[in-house]
Amino acid sequence: MKIFGAMYDKTMAWSKHRFATYWLSFLSFIEAIFFPIPPDIMLIPMAMSKPKSAVKFALITAIASVLGGMIGYSIGYYAFDLVQEYIVKFGYQAHWDKAISWFEQWGVLVVFVAGFSPIPYKVFTIAAGVMQMAFLPFVATAFISRAARFLLLARLAAWGGEKFAAKLRRSIEVIGWSVVLLAIIAYLILR
């Protein structure tokens, strides 16, 4: 069953669309608040298809992500009672507990680590607000972390360029099904 090739082709087409930068910004913004899909899925193909703009795309992604993170922080600070049930409903409770314990242990450094962590970034933005972390250090640390992550991804994707995109397309079914299999195994082990 070949489904990943069609998704890959669609994503590559979106990455070349004239509104791709706006979609990238929007995706980065909402991912830091509630959306489950990270902006990497747009950033990487955009950087591969337009390598000279990779740094610009990374900075746009970082800025939008930090702006979204500021909204997530505000939700945690002012309205956590309204969203607390969704943490459990969408399966983020274990991530939430880990983030809170990290905040208690390391404070602002957790926001830096969050930029590279497999734990969804939105968990950290809301947790920072709940923990009433100082706002300006939160914003500064979030920007440094997110910019570093997205610059790294964009530069690697740009380095590979169109040649890498073509090679990736030839192997996308194997990669896609391998990721699904690993996710199932991880779920069975960690539950």
Rank of each mutant, 00 (worst) to 15 (best):
M1L: 11
K2V: 10
K2D: 14
I3M: 15
F4D: 07
G5V: 14
A6Y: 15
Y8C: 14
D9P: 04
T11Q: 13
M12Q: 12
A13S: 14
W14P: 00
S15P: 02
K16G: 10
R18D: 11
T21I: 12
W23M: 12
W23D: 02
F26T: 11
F26A: 15
S28A: 14
S28W: 04
F29I: 09
F29Y: 12
E31F: 03
A32V: 03
A32Q: 06
F34V: 13
F34M: 10
I37W: 04
P39V: 08
D40T: 13
M42G: 01
I44M: 11
I44A: 10
M46P: 05
A47S: 15
A47Q: 01
M48T: 08
S49Q: 13
K50Y: 11
P51I: 05
A54M: 04
V55Q: 00
F57E: 02
A58I: 08
T61G: 12
I63K: 08
G68Y: 05
M70N: 04
G72W: 00
Y78I: 07
Y78W: 13
A79Q: 11
Y86V: 02
Y86L: 10
K89I: 10
K89E: 13
F90C: 05
F90H: 05
F90A: 06
G91C: 01
Y92A: 07
Q93Y: 10
Q93D: 06
A94P: 00
D97E: 11
I100M: 14
S101F: 08
W102I: 06
F103P: 00
Q105Y: 10
W106C: 06
L109E: 08
V113L: 12
V113C: 10
A114K: 04
G115H: 03
I119M: 09
P120T: 09
Y121P: 02
T125L: 05
I126Y: 06
I126R: 00
I126Q: 01
A127V: 06
A128T: 07
V130F: 15
Q132I: 11
Q132D: 14
F135G: 05
P137Y: 14
P137W: 11
F138A: 11
F138E: 09
V139T: 14
F143D: 07
A147L: 09
A147W: 04
A148I: 07
F150A: 05
F150I: 07
L152Q: 08
A154Q: 00
A158L: 05
A158Q: 02
A158I: 08
W159P: 00
G161H: 06
E162Y: 09
K163N: 09
A165R: 03
A165H: 04
L168M: 14
R169D: 01
R169V: 03
R170C: 05
R170K: 15
I172R: 01
I172K: 00
E173Y: 03
V174S: 07
I175T: 09
S178G: 15
S178V: 07
V180F: 07
L181I: 13
A186C: 02
Y187N: 06
Y187I: 09
Y187K: 09
L188R: 06
L190F: 07
